[in-house]
């Protein structure tokens, strides 16, 4: 019995050491996937780090990445603009924790999240963001089970492949640089700027209704507002851009969500949902992703709102 247990323990220790050795990148290697869409997180943080407050920081999912012309706002306001939007799959928690990490006193944070955005998001996606940009590991929760899984499975799979490629002088497959969903599609502010016309058909958008999930994101948004108030950070909420084809079947639920925000959310709203609805021709592949022409129109609307509400001086 003792021999059996001892053997099991030694075996587990050996296995853990082997995996640990591999996960420590014993053979120095660069991480794959850095050039993918999620790789933009590194550049966004680099820009956020080098800009001085007060700044305008946009937070949200891909509707922000595709929907803001930061240069236009910089020129009109004279303030640095940081676009932190990447993808809604990161989840509201990640997006708001990232905003907590980036924002400094006197900054203006504009939160614009897609409807029914999951608080938790996709662990796989968040984990990839954290692999490429390690501080992002603090933007989301890890259960013990996930940590063990990360160590023994996902990190191991990643590092084993890198090490194997290194030892065999195998060239790692490079991420294509000329596609919309790549790191190179972002400008230094964090906006997606690649020319992505022509856009695919959007007829399918009319089919999808929106489920009503009561008050899904109000508590985390209010918690962020309290955080911002304590640190003298101004925070505003902007409804996400939405294709009018998609808006029609979702209109009823969107109005319920807007009412819930009016009643329960402490972050001041800059606009109404219908103000962010744009013609179908201004959208790219999803109901949230504006094409460059749409982005200009939306950005102008935002500038008008900032001016009208007296949030910043606009030329």
């Amino acid at each position: 019995m003792k021999k059996f247990i001892l053997n099991i323990i030694v075996f587990i220790v050996l296995l853990t050491l082997l995996v640990f050795g591999m996960n420590r990148n014993y053979f120095p290697a660069k991480a794959t996937g850095n050039d993918g869409y999620i790789g933009a997180i590194v550049d966004k943080h680099a820009y956020a780090d080098k800009t001085k407050s007060p700044r305008i920081i946009f937070c949200g999912g891909s509707s922000i990445a595709f929907g803001i012309d930061s240069k236009m706002i910089e020129q009109a306001t004279g303030l640095p603009v940081v676009n932190m939007g990447i993808n809604g799959s990161l989840g509201l928690d990640f997006i708001l924790n990232q905003a907590r990490y980036v924002a400094r006193p006197n900054d203006i944070v504009i939160v614009s999240v897609e409807y029914n955005l999951s608080e938790e998001g996709s662990y796989k996606f968040k984990q990839e963001a954290a692999r490429i940009y390690p501080p992002a590991s603090n933007f989301f929760k890890h259960t013990i089970s996930q940590r063990i899984n990360d160590f023994f499975v996902s990190d191991f799979q990643h590092n084993f492949f890198i090490t194997f490629s290194h030892l065999t002088n195998r060239k790692l497959r490079e991420f294509p640089k000329n596609v919309v969903y790549s790191r190179s599609s972002f400008n230094e502010n964090g906006d997606v700027v690649r020319n992505f016309d022509p856009h695919p058909s959007h007829d399918f958008l009319q089919k999808f209704e929106l489920n009503h999930i009561p008050n899904p994101d109000i508590a985390p948004l209010n918690s962020f507002k309290s955080f911002a108030d304590e640190r003298k950070i101004k925070v505003y909420f902007l409804f996400p851009s939405l294709d009018e084809l998609a808006y029609k079947p979702k209109k009823h639920v969107v109005s319920i969500i807007a009412n819930e925000y009016n009643e329960g959310m402490h972050i001041p709203r800059l606009n109404k949902p219908e103000d962010s609805v744009f013609p179908d021709s201004l959208f790219y592949d999803t109901e949230y992703h504006l094409v460059p022409a749409g982005k200009k129109i939306r950005t102008q609307k935002i500038l008008d709102l900032l001016k009208e509400k007296g949030i910043v001086k606009v030329k």
């Binding site: 999620i38 984990q127 013990i144 063990i148 899984n149 499975v153």
Partner: peptide
């Protein structure tokens, strides 16, 4: 990228 979970509780 991003391996799935093997362990669940």
């Amino acid at each position: 990228q991003g391996a799935p979970l093997i362990l669940s509780i």
